[in-house]
Amino acid sequence: MAEMLLRDAVSKALMEALDEDERCFLMGEDIGAYGGAYAVTRGFLDKYGEERVRDTPISESVFVGAGVGSAMIGMRPIVEVMTINFTLVAMDQIINHAAKLSYMSNGQLTVPLIIRTVTGGGGQLAATHSQSFENWYASVPGLRVVVPATPYDALGMFRASRKDNNPIIFAEHALLYRVKGEVPEEYYEVPLGKARIAKPGTDVTLVAYSGMVRVAEEAAAKLQEDNISSEVIDLRCLSPLDLDTVIESVKKTNRVAVVEETWKTGGFSGTIASDIQEAVFDDLDGPVLRINGPDVPAPYARNIEQLMIPNADWVVESVKYNFGL
């Protein structure tokens, strides 16, 4: 099995799409001549040409909408929005149009559109460039939200996304691009809406997604030093959400913490926590713990920026305190 960077796994997924499906094309800011702000599409323009690797004006609304419109007539566009912060400029097209067309047309139209974007903070890019909005999009019926944490999942879920006929927010965490992981040579897919048990355990369940999966894994290793066995669940998708895997784990561990990078108010961890207590209240030995970034805009200075992103020590301390372990 080969080791691969998450960035390269996404590149491979995109090349497959272009090689295998003539309806696929890429469109976005600086994906062609520049090679992508995160170098995911480096070399693509030379290989596939400007018809299929389309540099767009900095006009998020129209190029996302152009993705929607072309999908309406059977193309399978893959649109890159440089970061999830910029998707806010295109929110009308994503929420009012992409997410609604199948329903409003009573199934006459479908929107098989993948919107790739880069999420997360920690890069000292300050308040407007460090946000995570996957949770917002996950609250919109009609959208899928895919949040891979490993190269294996990035490739496998991208393949599954291509077969899904719905608008998908495919959010890649900026700090995960340089993470390495095993990716098999042979073809595989990772279905959307199936969480992954990243590490089995018995005493406490740590639920995470995207960049926080690594944090949860690191915390689990530290908790193990104190003989506390953690089960780490990587949600992999926020929509569709695999609650069953979470519930089964909580039935076993009776303790659960949800770790999420974005703000606590309105965070997706609130939805998970609520769903858990509705489903298995009597199985819980303590309140569902939510570990989120505090409700502050991201600062530039590294020392205080780090204070707003959950880390392993923070998770360890919170878990021990909350559950009296």
Binding site: V62, G65, G69, S70, A71, M72, I73, M75, P77, H97
Partner: peptide
Amino acid sequence: IVGGQLPLAIGIALGVKL
């Protein structure tokens, strides 16, 4: 949504062209 159909029209036209 006022103006929202314009990007969609662009996309349909792009699809036609491709």
